[in-house]
Computed example of a mutant assay.
Amino acid sequence: MALAKFTGSFHGTHGFPPDQNAVMLATDDSHRATGGLVDLTPIPSDLTALYWVISEALLPGIDSGYFIHSPATAAEHFREYGSVPVDGEAIVFASDGGGHLFAISDSGHIWKSTTASWFDDFEVAASSLQEFLEHISQRITSRP
């Protein structure tokens, strides 16, 4: 609902139409992809629960953009790059429009890369997946 309100008022506020913002619900295929990701590496239960409800989110019109990757994309990236060595291990599950990566660690913390790289430093962006999602929600609802 908030995303629809934000998208509807975007043009009047900014003078140009928003990019395509969408949240895709999970499907049987994305559930299988989540199972495949779990087979590759243990992932925090919060991420599994998220992927059980949504398969991905494309929010290019929010700040510089937020993109929650599908479980198939997260698995593909894990196979190609491995985990991020922070707080034990962390798996990349999202990015922003600037190429910064978001990873969730075994502790549930969300880490953001300091550059658009898999191999540079990461810093804590949120204490939990819920806090990370609430931050995005606040960015959506705080728009006129």
Rank of each mutant, 00 (worst) to 15 (best):
S127I: 06
A75G: 15
S127Q: 15
D29P: 10
L133Q: 01
T34G: 08
E89D: 03
G108Q: 11
E76W: 05
E56W: 02
S9N: 03
V23Q: 03
V84C: 01
D63R: 08
I104F: 06
K5M: 08
L40Y: 07
D106E: 14
L40F: 09
G98H: 09
F78R: 11
I91S: 13
G36H: 13
S117W: 07
P60C: 01
I62C: 10
A4F: 06
T41G: 10
I136N: 01
L133K: 01
T34H: 13
D63Y: 03
A57V: 11
G108W: 01
W118C: 11
L59P: 04
V23H: 03
L101N: 04
W52N: 15
S55F: 05
V23G: 03
D96K: 07
P85Y: 04
L58Q: 15
D96Q: 08
L37P: 08
D106M: 10
M1C: 14
D28P: 11
N21Q: 12
R32H: 14
G82A: 09
E131D: 14
F67M: 05
S83E: 05
Q138K: 08
I104L: 08
Q20D: 13
E134L: 08
H69I: 00
F93P: 08
L129Q: 00
E80L: 13
T13M: 11
F122C: 01
F78N: 09
T114P: 02
M24L: 15
G61Q: 04
A49G: 07
P71A: 00
G8C: 02
A103H: 02
G97Q: 05
A74H: 05
I104Y: 01
A126T: 01
H31L: 15
Y66S: 07
G12P: 00
F122G: 01
I136V: 05
A116V: 09
F78Q: 08
L3G: 14
S113I: 05
H100K: 06
E89M: 03
L59K: 03
V86D: 13
T27E: 12
S70M: 00
D96C: 14
M1V: 12
S117M: 10
L47V: 11
L133I: 09
F78V: 12
L25G: 15
P42N: 12
I43E: 13
A49M: 08
S127Y: 07
H109T: 09
D29K: 09
I54D: 00
D106C: 02
G99M: 08
T13N: 09
S117D: 14
L58V: 05
A103S: 13
F67L: 01
L37I: 00
A126W: 02
D19I: 00
Q130N: 14
D96W: 08
A33N: 10
A57M: 14
A22Y: 07
E131S: 07
V86I: 07
L50D: 00
V53P: 07
A72F: 03
H77L: 15
F78C: 04
I104M: 07
G97K: 03
F16M: 14
I68E: 06
I136D: 06
A2E: 15
F78I: 04
A75H: 02
R79E: 13
H69N: 10
S30H: 12
D120W: 05
T34Y: 05
G35P: 03
D120Q: 14
V38S: 11
R139A: 13
L58R: 14
F10C: 04
Q130S: 15
E134M: 02
P144A: 10
F102A: 07
G97E: 13
